[in-house]
């Protein structure tokens, strides 16, 4: 059972990253390979605000989240909007380049060393049937699920959320109803960065922070999005949790060094056997 508990902890982070992938995919049709870097930035921001500037946690978190939105919007304005021929291949290439640039900048700013972020809540171990979770892991799960539910509520209930959903489905129809599709894409990058930074903030005390953190978490989030069905909101959440649990199980029967390979096996299996993922639907194309 313990592998399930640890799997849910890491899976809830993959779920947040997968949601970031899905939001960008739905609004632009591309895979943002810089999504993992937003997680790294989240860790770095919270480290900087707490440890370097000594800002209290209750102020540091909102500041980091606000900065996340700004970073996401700037990402769109700098890397996406300026692409002269914005077809899918060019945009995906730009996100890979952007990820490398962000990682390089992070190394210059924060260095190569692993940075330590203290726990946000007192450390304790909570027992569950067949296993246990630390208070930090519970915080990760609670914050991730709360974020996913709030986002789902936003998409379902708010006027802006409906504009997002209209853009996902038919950009032409949305724009004729007064929706500024470019503005929605910019906000999508803001929300994707926000999700990444939330993931980075909550995991920082558990995993610590290094400038290369975004690579693996980004790829695992991508695997989770593929597993759940690219573009499917709750598919991304389920894909993340399942990937975390599978990975935990894999690590419990084989040397844990192999566990990172599992995400890539998942991508291959899904693409071979069920390309639309577990919960994805085949999308009708406009001819």
């Amino acid at each position: 059972m313990q592998f399930i508990y640890s799997g849910i902890t890491s899976g809830s982070i993959f779920a947040l990253v997968a949601l970031g992938f899905n939001i960008i995919y739905n609004t632009t049709g591309i895979i943002n390979f810089a999504q993992g870097e937003f997680v790294m930035i989240g860790g770095m921001l919270i480290y900087t605000l707490l440890s370097i500037y000594g800002i209290p946690l209750f102020m540091a978190v909102p500041v980091a989240l606000l900065l996340a939105l700004i970073i996401g919007i700037l990402f769109d304005k700098i890397f996406i909007k300026l692409v002269k021929v914005p077809n899918e291949i060019n945009l995906i290439t730009v996100t890979i380049a952007a990820a490398t640039i962000i990682r390089g900048l992070a190394m210059v700013i924060w260095g190569r060393n692993t940075l330590n972020v203290s726990g946000y809540i007192p450390y304790s171990v909570i027992s569950f049937p067949g296993g246990s979770l630390t208070s930090n892991s519970l915080l990760v799960i609670a914050v991730s699920l709360l974020t996913a539910f709030s986002l789902s509520l936003f998409f379902k209930k708010s006027s802006l959320g409906k504009a997002f959903r209209a853009c996902y489905n038919d950009k032409m129809a949305a724009s004729i109803c007064g929706v500024d599709v470019g503005h929605i894409r910019m906000l999508a990058f803001g929300i994707a960065a926000f999700l990444g930074v939330v993931a980075g903030i909550v995991t920082a005390p558990i995993t610590y922070v290094t400038y290369t953190d975004g690579v693996m978490v980004g790829l695992k989030g991508f695997a989770a999005a593929i597993l759940g069905g690219l573009g499917n909101f709750w598919g991304g959440v389920a894909g993340g949790l399942l990937l975390g649990i599978f990975e935990g199980f894999f690590a419990s029967i084989l040397p844990s060094g192999y566990k990172d390979a599992f995400a890539f096996l998942i991508i291959l299996f899904v693409l071979f056997l069920r390309p639309m993922g577990l919960f994805g639907k085949k999308k009708a194309e406009r001819l």
Binding site: L153, F154, K157, S158, S159, L160, G161, K162, A163, R165, A166, Y168, N169, D170, M172, A173, A174, I176, C177, G178, V179
Partner: peptide, 29 residues
């Protein structure tokens, strides 16, 4: 036809209004 199949009939109609009125996201939620 450019009807948004992801949205229900009333939601499709609502889109015609919110595109014009642009109500605040928080207030609408």
């Amino acid at each position: 036809l450019n009807v948004i199949k992801e949205l229900s009939l009333p939601e499709n109609l609502l889109l015609g209004i919110i595109g014009k009125d642009k109500p605040s996201a928080l207030k609408s939620m």
